[in-house]
Design a protein around this nucleic acid. Sequence first.
RNA 1: GGCCCCGUGGUCUAACGGUUAGGAUGCAGGCCUUUCAAGCCUGAGGCACGGGUUCAACUCCCGUCGGGGCUACCA
Length: 494
Amino acid sequence: MAQVRTRMAPSPTGYFHVGSARTALFSWLFARQQGGEFILRIEDTDRERSTPEHVEVILDSMRWLGLEWDGDVIYQSENLDRHTAAAHQLLASGHAYRCYATTQEIAAARESAAARGVPSWKYTGPDCVISAEEQAARAAAGAPSVVRCRVPRAAGRIEFEDLVYGPQSIDPDEIDDFVLLRADGSPLYMLSVVCDDIDEGITHILRGQDHLSNTPKQILLYQALGAPVPQFGHLALIMAPDGSKLSKRRHGEVVSITTYRDRGFLPEAMCSFLAQLGYSTGEAEESELLTLDQLAADFDLSRAGRSNAKFIYDASNPKQWTDAKAQNLNASWIRSMPIADLLPHLRPWLERAGLWSDDFIGAQAEWFEATIDLIRQRFWTLEDFVVQGAAYLSDRVEYDPAAVKKNLAKNPRTGPLLNELANRFEAVPFDHESLEAALRGYAEEEGVGAGLLINGLRTAVTGYAVGPSAFELCLALGRERVLHRLRHLPALEG
RNA sequence: GGCCCCGUGGUCUAACGGUUAGGAUGCAGGCCUUUCAAGCCUGAGGCACGGGUUCAACUCCCGUCGGGGCUACCA
């Protein structure tokens, strides 16, 4: 039994599409589950778009997601000679032929067929548009020609078993004698993919459902080339909220994997989200927070859905910039994963924001971890650690205007009360019980609700209206910072 | 237009001939009360439609409608 080998074959477009990421994920999981290999091939034959930068985006995205590939990255552009050689082999074996009809002539034939009421005209042979004599004349005159695949129309329907969609059966008369080589001799996608997949020994091809109707043509090519036909598995597509195809052009950054990385997503969250789009993790799974290893362990293509999944977001609402479920999963991962696993993801963010200290993994490690654990319970992205988190990890406080207004500025007494609260805090042991007793006692003394001071305290020392329990966070912040911030409140306009 | 694929609450999904159609997310309300984009509880919300087959259909068949893909000398 040959070893399973899957591949991901993206073309460098300048971004890595979430749908591509999902295909890559499924291919990776399948290979992993089968104990096989997963290959990455860059389909860089479109010179315009294939810049090194564009390739890097793909590699970065794949690495970030944790989808490491086996062996070196393969570049399709390096195999072009083999693709044209394959076309010549097909020409020699009679599986392909030269076509001298021009695109205009073919279009005209198609139109007139439509005018005659022929529902679907196909290019079905060398002389279906121009006569054999004319072909010979053009050949003799050295006219340009393309190489077309000779679709075996008498061989009956083309059949295959799709790993996701089940049995497929296509009438060859529904397929044109498709072009293999352009007039300039360059190979087309249909030929190139098949050649590369044969060369790389790909056994299972998982890709978007948009390739389902290309499959019969490719099967024909495998057969004509005398190669074993791999197994195909097509994955339902990810659609935009309005049901249209998700595209960078129309839908923007939300479709790009690097956006998620840059906005503080955890790759684990992205993978578990992608895995749940159009796929159901087994009933045995209690949690939706599955790691790649857990996902791979019982990966089963039969649980892949056949209907397209919508990706719901609202570009006009900052809180819904991407799918709510994705955000929820990210928050869940951030809040529940072992601190030790979270740290490697968090550290670069803190470093970039100038919030990192080596003491966090040294002298202050215990405090640091406890603090992270405390504040992450209400965080949604890694970015939260450097915005709201700054107040806990440094002397920097970012005051949220709405919070200041609500908890500090609204009641004119708040400021002075908090200033005095600093003195009360200074006079007692710095522990939860003492602080709470001091605050409540002071509130009673002044005839104000404890809530006024508690909420004011939270905003004064963290900058935000929401966060952990006020006393707990004071302990995390430490005596000096709390006292200092209570004595140096932000400007209270309005 | 032709060929192909799909159709369970807003969204992601479970149930594969007999369930009060389950879960998640989102939404609404409540609790907590010192906050909430936290936590806990409750609630509203679904089998696209019409025919069959069957004692019995979300589950099987046909049709309709709806959505999507492909239909290039793009990938």
